[in-house]
Write a protein that binds this DNA or RNA. Structure first.
Lengths: 232, 232
DNA sequence: GGGTGTGAAACACTTCACAGCT
DNA sequence: AGCTGTGAAGTGTTTCACACCC
């Protein structure tokens, strides 16, 4: 199914970040070895990852920073505007809304939604918090590409359903729970329903990271630390 | 190097979360098929993941929820106290400090550190924010098992170095940057230095998740969605 | 010479089929 | 019969060696 490894996409994001830094430092050229060292992977890996999407370098020369950056931006789909709503505007949702860096590459918050009456009507980052029930109407007049889900875990599946019903095709789930990509509240209706067709869920789970860290502190030998390529 | 797949550890965390929910609902028994459906993986995968660590079920019967939960808690190392410091007490650091759920399984915040004079001395969640320079002294008298790194990306490597120098063996990095597990400010000294020996870094990167989501919305066929086991 | 791009080999992970216990 | 536990097969990912081009 997956001809391009999922892990390769994560690494591409890392390479892009490194290229941004290099550009800020007015470095114009780099190499797979240099990128590998900065990304903490092998140079083989860098070349293979890039090769999945094209030929961006020059043999004997390496890569030109602005060119490779532009190509990665294109590959990752960051050369367009992404309209984002945040569902759940508690402490976490507000921290996300205010976190710098999301507005790079044209990620734009276009709406904030919650169910807490105390929050609805308040302003966060210049946007008025609306009731989640109005999300569906909202998406009739406003394109929404992704939803950031920052509600308590017991509310996450319902809130995700609201996003799917509203036609939002991407969910970044911050709640420590698995989002079922199907409508779960109708018994006997567990097949991939229409509203969930094509919906992508990506997880960002702080509590899980904390627990994985605990495990690897106790079992450090199970953590694979890539060794950079040995230049002979 | 890795005899147990890294992905298996992430799934174990998910299974544990599901078992907690089941226990709250007074469900006493489960099966690999049931866990698989809730976790969004195959039943084969569940059984294999558990088999890496022992035999926790009964053939023909399935798993007893409290027993499997207890065993996963033990395997993940959550049956002990974990003392945590937060480095970086801006908006993100404060959101982390106040996020519910970390105190389950005895994760305890024992110190908050920053370099911003406006923050030092203030109270967050009942703890006084201290200067990062005092971290080393702090760890002389107080055991610290892990550090949560919530500083701006350009400060992350330095702050991570402070944690490593203070003898902290685990870093949960929230900054969108790669932490080099070595001392980088001494030229020609890029080998694995003593203070970094055995330090584990785990990343929780919201901006990377956002970019991966963008990619997969544009390329949904590259996202591998596991299909639950077909019960014949 | 030097560094990319890539088919092939090596390795890791997942899927499977079924033995074995209840 | 039912469901776990597990060696073996299958698949996917990483590593490698080197052809190729600057």
């Amino acid at each position: 199914m997956a001809e391009i490894p999922t892990a390769a996409i994560s690494r591409l994001v890392t390479y892009l970040r490194i290229l941004e830094q290099l550009e800020l430092q007015d470095v114009s050229r780099t190499s797979s070895t240099d990128l590998a060292e900065r990304a903490g992977v092998t140079a083989f890996q860098v070349r293979k990852d890039l090769a999945y999407f094209g030929r961006f370098g020059t043999r004997g020369m390496g890569y030109t920073v602005p060119i490779l950056k532009r190509e990665l931006v294109r590959v990752l789909g960051l050369n367009r505007t992404w309209n984002v709503v945040i569902v759940g505007v508690g402490r976490l949702g507000q921290a996300i809304a205010n976190y710098p860096g999301a507005s790079d590459y044209q990620f734009q918050y276009v709406g904030l939604f919650d169910v807490n009456p105390d929050l609805i009507g308040t302003q966060v980052r210049g946007l008025r918090v609306q009731h989640l029930d109005t999300l569906r109407d909202f998406t009739q007049t406003q394109t929404v590409d992704m939803g950031f889900l920052a509600v308590p875990p017991d509310r996450a599946q319902d809130a995700a359903q609201s996003l799917a019903d509203a036609g939002v095709k991407g969910i970044l789930n911050f709640a420590p729970t698995v989002i079922q990509p199907r409508t779960t509240d109708r018994p006997g209706h567990t097949d991939l329903s229409d509203e969930w067709r094509g919906v992508i869920v990506e997880n960002v789970d702080f509590l899980a990271g904390m627990k994985r860290l605990a495990f690897y502190i106790l079992n450090p030998h199970l953590k694979d630390a890539p060794t950079p390529e040995d230049p002979t």
